[in-house]
């Protein structure tokens, strides 16, 4: 099992009260699998991802990656951020090489690895551009290449295409699948878009409203490349949407009558 999450819990202090954000979240992700976390906003899907990344402490349960308990952030778990989180003072290439620099990989080797990744993610010609000169889609290509440079066991993606326009978003989804099949990474991908989840995932984890746990795991089971207009695609989409709608309603009801 690449990612093994059992009985995960997370409690936030909020003023004098405590908020239970996640309670009893279980998920196992296999080697090379592409899993999407989907849920109403505030359900804690990003928190789950950040706990797996080691950016946030869990309050209970166990999180293991390749049989090793997660303690703090580390290069074996690459992360891609919605905000891109590129270092503005570094060129695309030097952003990609950041993790290698930290490990003191010699410059020639760094160059070789970054060149390979630049080819892989389709950044040829933009190696020496700074982030502010790049479009959103190009920025996220850098973000993905930068995470891949460390050769992580898993790729954690936090709504990576959430800041992109619809066209770029569709293109980047196809690009991600291409990169994924080329690198065979295990991917845990957070999104609030049903369409995106059905297009990308092997399995979709629908989360409940707060406190977040797994409501249902829906295997997509469609061959790739998927056609968004096909009957099967729409059928899966409808099923996921129905599950999600109920949770949206619950989340809304909770918002209207706070405890």
């Amino acid at each position: 099992m690449t990612i093994d999450i059992r009985g995960l819990g997370k409690v936030f202090p909020k003023g004098k009260k405590t908020v239970i954000a996640i309670d009893g979240f279980d998920l196992q992700v296999g080697e090379g699998e592409f899993v999407c976390l989907l849920g109403p906003s505030g359900c804690g899907k990003t928190t789950v991802l950040r706990i797996v990344a080691g950016l946030e402490e869990k309050s209970g349960g166990t999180v293991e990656v390749h049989g090793k308990a997660v303690v703090g952030a580390g290069p074996e778990r690459g992360m891609v951020f919605q905000e891109f989180a590129l270092f503005p003072w570094r060129t695309a290439r030097r952003n990609i090489e950041f993790g290698l620099e930290l490990k003191s990989v010699p410059e020639i080797e760094r160059r070789r690895i970054s060149s390979k990744l630049i080819d892989l993610v389709g950044l040829q010609g933009f190696e020496d551009a700074h982030p502010r000169e790049l479009s959103g889609g190009m920025k996220q290509r850098v973000g993905i290449a930068r995470a891949l440079a460390n050769e992580p066991a898993v790729l954690l993606m936090d709504e990576p295409f959430g800041a992109l326009d619809a066209q770029t978003r569709n293109l980047m989804q196809k690009e991600l699948l291409r990169i994924w099949s080329a690198t065979k990474k295990t991917v845990l991908f957070v999104t609030h878009s049903v369409d995106e989840a059905v297009f990308l995932a092997d399995r979709i984890v629908v989360m409940t409203a707060r406190p977040g746990k797994v409501r249902e795991i829906i295997p997509v089971g469609l061959p790739r490349p998927r056609d968004r207009t096909s009957g099967e695609f729409i059928a899966v989409r409808g099923k996921v949407l129905a599950e999600l709608d109920e949770e949206f309603e619950k989340a809304r009801a909770k918002e209207l009558s706070p405890d």
Partner: peptide, 27 residues
């Protein structure tokens, strides 16, 4: 300093010292 940059550096393997020299100082 944008906290997401520090998060990014940490997931790329930066320790506290490296976060300081490679993110905070250039910022």
């Amino acid at each position: 300093v944008d906290p997401v940059l520090i998060d990014a550096a940490r997931t790329l393997g930066a320790n506290r010292g490296q976060v300081f020299t490679k993110v905070i100082i250039p910022f």
